[in-house]
Nucleic acid binder design. Structure first.
Lengths: 254, 254
DNA sequence: CCCTTTATAGTCAGAGTGACTATTAAAAAA
DNA sequence: TTTTTTAATAGTCACTCTGACTATAAAGGG
């Protein structure tokens, strides 16, 4: 540790940073992945949209700060916020990411089912859901954070039961499939999806009686709830973007 | 953002934090996963071993700080450090993780081939490789960080070409298999491993001529180098820890 | 020269997968 | 009411991938 800073670091000689959390809160709505954004009321980036977030307070962890901000932004009760899936993504530390001062930000992703009332929180006036992809350029490095968050979520659908976090407590396999198709941006074969999901032990479990969801058009679907596992064996791999080597090993051009 | 801190945060009214990086530097040696640790010379945790790390300086990113620390600890040239794989793991923010002050630490994992001369850096006296698992309790929350790092590396071997980072530029499939077996702590069937690796497009490519590694006992092995891909399709899944549901759906006890 | 060691080739049954077709149960249209 | 439409679910089939093997090849040690 020959950094100029004394080894064991002297508490009075450290470079001061501010630490914030930024939240990428996702939901699946209208066959599109949506993210919760807030409009900035002042410079820098006044009028631009940004991920919700805020300071980590002196006596809380970043996880606690993220849950606190999430409760404030979404208006969800502390019970709901306490149980939902919150995942630390990565930390963004570019020295110039905030033009005013040195701020490092710990980014989180949160997944919500499509809520009937999006948020009822305090300063909800300037907050709304945006379809990812149709957001303009965001404030700070939030475009980058959002892109990273999308990538991470898409990847984790393959080998975790994360998709159920987008669904209500009881859901149909069609709804679950909709989540996969929306996040991955692909269409999946329905019978095959069904077979694969049901073949993963502990992914979903049928709701006991024969209750079925009605309201839609066709045959009513059976209801399931999330099973006991968090990791999927075998994984649900997304359709391969077939690899083409840059230097063809052999064979003719098509 | 109704946190008590003014929206858009006033640069003069933020809770001050120190930001550090901690490095989990791994190598595979003697059929065991090893990690680079440094011995602490002063309190707190004097005499305990810890992950190398240090402050993020005012004008550098955490990535830059991690590479700088890595160069200092390993004695590798800046060229080698500049190209090697450095992966941000997660950020540790417990308010009490450092008894002296509020420090958040961005943890990184780095992978090195087994170097003939471990490190030649400056204060290398108190740094050495430890087989993971035989480290005593480490300073701060470094046991937790190390465990998280091991988990992450093991998981990424499944679907990325990360294992080649543990190998020299040219390596045999036996050496690559050794990496998988060591990190996962399992034994793999050699012909099957070979078939799967060669079936992943872009994972490894044979070194052109018929050069072969000699020195060992048996038949000399062909040499390969890392191919062009970073992600593995299909993935090399580790042997399943077969899932047993807590409430047996049906059937008799064995 | 034989034996051990390691790399590599090949076999084979079973599981998993993509692309289908068929059937069922409901709502909407006629 | 009957027919049509829609969606869920069941099932088929060829193909691939996988784990568990056996067989052969090429080196060094005794």
């Amino acid at each position: 540790m020959s950094t100029g800073v004394p080894e064991g670091y002297d508490p009075h000689a450290f470079p001061p940073f501010a630490v914030t959390v930024d939240l990428a809160v996702f939901t699946v709505r209208d066959e599109a992945l949506h993210v919760l954004l807030v409009e900035r009321g002042q410079d820098p980036f006044q009028g631009r949209w940004a991920l919700p977030g805020g300071f980590v307070l002196p006596r809380e962890s970043a996880d606690e700060a993220a849950r606190r901000e999430l409760a404030e932004e979404t208006g969800l009760g502390p019970d709901a916020v306490g149980t939902l899936h919150l995942e630390q993504l990565r930390t963004y530390t570019d020295p110039d990411r905030d033009p005013r001062m040195r701020v490092v930000s710990v980014a989180y992703a949160a997944l919500l089912p499509d809520l009937p009332e999006p948020r009822g929180g305090g300063d909800a006036a300037s907050a709304r859901w945006w379809a990812t992809g149709s957001t303009g350029p965001l404030a700070f490095d939030h475009d980058r954070i959002l892109a990273d968050a999308r990538d991470r979520i898409g990847a984790k659908l393959e080998y975790t039961c994360l998709a159920t976090e987008f669904c209500p407590a009881e859901f149909t396999l069609g709804e679950l499939q909709q989540v996969y198709e929306t996040v991955w941006g692909v269409e999946l074969d329905r019978p095959n999806f069904r077979r694969k999901v049901l073949n993963v032990p502990g992914f979903v479990q049928p709701v006991d009686g024969p209750p079925r969801r009605t309201g839609g058009r066709g045959k009513p679907a059976a209801l399931y709830r999330a099973g006991g596992t968090t990791t999927l064996h075998p994984p649900l791999l997304r359709p391969q973007p077939t690899y083409v080597p840059l230097s063809r090993p052999e064979g003719r051009t098509p």
